[in-house]
C-alpha cells in the first residue's frame, strides 16, 4: 500500500517513514508544499499523511486538491494540536481523519489501516491471521470459524494489536488508544493488564495460538507467527 507522507520536520519524517515501512507500507515523502503538490498530482496513493503548516504553503490546499483529484485516497491530517479551526476546516475540505501531534506511531498505523480498509473495501474486508479472523465493521472475531465473545474494550485492544502485529506496543500507546489521550497510564496499568489477560484467555480457549506476548517492562506484542 502506497502512502505519501508530507511533513517538514526531518526527524519526525524519518521516524514515521521507517515505522510505516517496517509494517509494510510503501512510503514516499515530501518536506515542503511544492514537492508535496508535485507528488500528489503525479502519483496515486492509497493514503496521504499531511501536516498543515508547511514551508511555502498550507497543507489544507493539498487536502483540497487531493479530494478533488481522487475521492478514494485516504487523507489524514497530522498537525500540532490545538488548531481546532484547522481540524474542522480540514475535515470539511475532505480529510478523513485528524491526528494531533504528538501521537504514537502505532496509533498512526492503526488509523491508516482502518482508513484504507474503509476507503477501498467499504469496510467489508476481514483481517485474517492464520486461525484468527476479524471483521472490524461487524465487531466479529473468530478462531478457526468459532465466534469469540469479546467486550468492546477487548475488541478494541485486539484490533489495535493486530493492526500493529509483530510490533512492540508501549503501554502508554495502548492506554491512550483505548482510554483516550487524557488518560493517565499509571492509573490504567492495572486495567490494561487484566483486560489483556482476559482477551488472551478467551482467544486461547477457542484454540488460538498464544499470540499475545508481554514485552517485559514495556508493553505487548501480537505475533503473527506464533
Amino acid at each position: 500500500m502506497k502512502v505519501l507522507l508530507i511533513e517538514d520536520e526531518q526527524e519526525l519524517r524519518r521516524s514515521i517513514r521507517a515505522f510505516l515501512q517496517d509494517v509494510g507500507f510503501l512510503v514516499e515523502s515530501a518536506n515542503d508544499f511544492p514537492s508535496a503538490m508535485e507528488k500528489a498530482e503525479q502519483y496515486a496513493y492509497d493514503a496521504v499523511l499531511v501536516d498543515i503548516t508547511l514551508p511555502k504553503g498550507s497543507g489544507l490546499d493539498i487536502v483540497r486538491m487531493l479530494r478533488k483529484q481522487n475521492p478514494n485516497t485516504g487523507i489524514i491530517i497530522i498537525s500540532a494540536k490545538g488548531s481546532l479551526d484547522d481540524k474542522i476546516l480540514g475535515l470539511d475540505l475532505g480529510a478523513d481523519d485528524y491526528l494531533p501531534k504528538p501521537f504514537h506511531l502505532p496509533e498512526l498505523v492503526a488509523r491508516l489501516r482502518a482508513l484504507i480498509r474503509r476507503k477501498q473495501f467499504a469496510g467489508n474486508q476481514a483481517i485474517e491471521l492464520d486461525e484468527l479472523r476479524i471483521v472490524p465493521d461487524d465487531k466479529l472475531v473468530e478462531v478457526n470459524g468459532q465466534r469469540v465473545d469479546l467486550t468492546v474494550m477487548q475488541f478494541d485492544l485486539l484490533l489495535f494489536l493486530v493492526a500493529n502485529k509483530d510490533r512492540v506496543l508501549s503501554r502508554t500507546a495502548i492506554v491512550e488508544h483505548v482510554w483516550g489521550e487524557m488518560a493517565d497510564r499509571l492509573d490504567h496499568d492495572h486495567f490494561l493488564y487484566s483486560h489483556m489477560k482476559n482477551l488472551r484467555k478467551k482467544l486461547l480457549e477457542k484454540g488460538s495460538k498464544d499470540r499475545i506476548q508481554t514485552v517485559y517492562g514495556l508493553g505487548y506484542r501480537l505475533s503473527s507467527h506464533a
Binding site: L12, S15, F19, G82, K101, F103, A173
Partner: peptide, 21 residues
C-alpha cells in the same frame, strides 16, 4: 510555547516508538 513544544514531543514519541522495536 505549547504549540512549539508539540513537534519536538512528536519527534521524541516517534523515536521512542521506534526504539522499543
Amino acid at each position: 510555547a505549547a504549540h512549539e513544544l508539540q513537534t519536538p514531543l512528536a519527534v521524541m514519541q516517534g523515536k521512542l516508538d521506534q526504539l522499543i522495536q
